[in-house]
């Protein structure tokens, strides 16, 4: 089955992960810009990182037949430094011209501070100005509800098209409002700290599969890219067809990301082939 991994931090993973993903049907990954585990000191460090994910990573993924796309942004944690962030923002439009950059992300809140909000708004404004897709991170654990609510409040005052915005890392207590407001939402499968494959399938059963993306993020922390495949198995084990699974794990990311024409993987449908039995015998 073909799978698109829509949120994947490839720079934190090995070539073996690419190889195993390819063996399990992954045809494309999309890599948002995120926190490296330490706060960077210089705008140029961000720019080198953007070059890495927009130029080098696609070549690494291509070794395994996987298409690699990316997003650029100042992540919520480092947005706490507005001076540094604004310097980085000045250079982000250069990257929107690159053939695999899909939009601005991941942006949003970490601790829901004034500084984070200032830079979140600035990045949304830039995304609107340059007609970019938007990927929004929502905070971890105890900060998630407050940060998600504030995210929606900020967006409600901005001229965004909800269909071009993906609000990620939602769970049972934060899924309803973004979906009802017309945004795409994402389930991020982590072994411990976010959503589990079973709970993701629960939410698919409760809310349907429209405007829902499932990903495993897979970064430098405790995470596992194959929680996505585990979720496919859980979904199928509850009786959903291969085509149902394709809708969720391939076609939905193709639909959302495909709003940027650079993402050229289209939704697919399984088809039975009627073969001529006489020809089969002859061959």
């Amino acid at each position: 089955m073909q799978i698109i991994q829509p949120h994947y931090h490839a720079i934190a993973r090995t070539a073996q992960d690419y190889e195993r993903m390819a063996m399990s049907g992954v045809v494309a990954v999309a890599e948002p810009a995120f926190w490296a585990g330490f706060d960077r000191l210089y705008p140029e460090t961000f720019l080198d990182y953007f070059h890495q994910i927009s130029e080098f990573e696609p070549t690494r993924a291509a070794e395994y037949g996987i298409k690699h796309y990316c997003w650029v942004a100042v992540n919520p944690k480092e947005a706490e430094n507005p001076e540094l962030s604004r310097e980085v923002l000045k250079h982000m439009p250069e990257f929107y011209k690159k053939p695999t950059v899909l939009g601005v992300g991941e942006i949003g809140f970490h601790k829901t501070t004034k500084n984070e909000e200032e830079i979140f708004e600035a990045q949304v404004e830039q995304a609107i100005k340059y007609d970019q897709l938007i990927l929004i991170h929502t905070p971890h654990l105890q900060d998630k509800v407050r940060g998600t609510k504030r995210t929606l409040e900020v967006l409600s005052h901005m001229n965004v098209n909800p269909e071009r915005v993906w609000i990620d890392h939602v769970e049972e207590h934060t899924i309803r409002e973004p979906l009802e407001a017309g945004y795409w939402v994402g389930f991020t499968l982590y072994p411990i700290t976010k959503c589990t494959p079973r709970r993701a399938v629960d939410m698919l059963e409760m809310y349907g599969h429209e405007r829902i993306l499932v990903n495993s993020s897979a970064d430098w922390g405790p995470s596992d890219p194959f929680t996505l495949q585990e979720c496919v198995v859980q979904y199928r084990a509850r009786g959903y067809s291969v085509q149902d699974a394709i809708e969720v794990f391939h076609n939905n990311p193709a639909r959302f990301l495909g709003q940027n024409p650079k993402f050229d993987i289209k939704p697919v449908r399984l088809e039975t082939i009627e073969e001529d039995s006489a020809n089969l015998v002859q061959n």
Binding site: E172, T193, T196, R198
Partner: peptide, 12 residues
């Protein structure tokens, strides 16, 4: 966090 995860999983 593991205990939290186990409890949420049980609730689910």
């Amino acid at each position: 966090l593991e205990a939290r995860c186990a409890l949420v999983e049980l609730a689910a």
